[in-house]
């Protein structure tokens, strides 16, 4: 049951986001959350007897798995990448401003 594993992964990411005080670790938590989500989306289209939805000379379109979740995940991955890049640059700016990545220390200053 990979879909349950994906949900556990998402919840792990959320737990990291809720508890950690380190800014880089929060970005990592966000990424774990997004990976879990993407994995869950992929499992939506999975079929036990299915094959990859690419037509070649030796297969038929009748056996294809659902291609739409895979297309959605492609978009979601790219968007996740964009958010991560911006978040990391903001984290760098925070470090430049306060000299630390720790939320508690920043709050004290």
């Amino acid at each position: 049951m990979i879909n349950l594993a994906a949900i556990v992964l998402m919840l792990l990411g959320l737990y990291a986001l809720l508890t950690t005080k380190h800014i880089i670790k929060m970005v990592v938590g966000l990424n774990v959350f997004e990976v879990g989500l993407n994995l869950f989306v992929i499992t939506i289209g999975f079929n036990k007897d299915g094959i990859a939805p690419i037509l070649t000379g030796s297969n038929s379109i009748k056996d294809f798995v659902d291609p739409l979740p895979q297309a959605i995940v492609l978009t979601a991955i790219v968007i996740g990448f964009g958010i991560t890049a911006v978040a990391l640059m903001v984290a760098r700016k925070i470090h430049e401003q306060y000299g630390t990545y720790d939320i508690n220390e920043i709050g004290g200053k």
């Binding site: 499992t43 939506i44 079929n47 798995v65 659902d66 291609p67 739409l68």
Partner: peptide
């Protein structure tokens, strides 16, 4: 899990 039917969705058309 693993029982998805493509026929029930718009993907069938795709």
């Amino acid at each position: 899990f693993g029982e998805t039917k493509v026929e029930n969705s718009v993907s069938d058309t795709y």
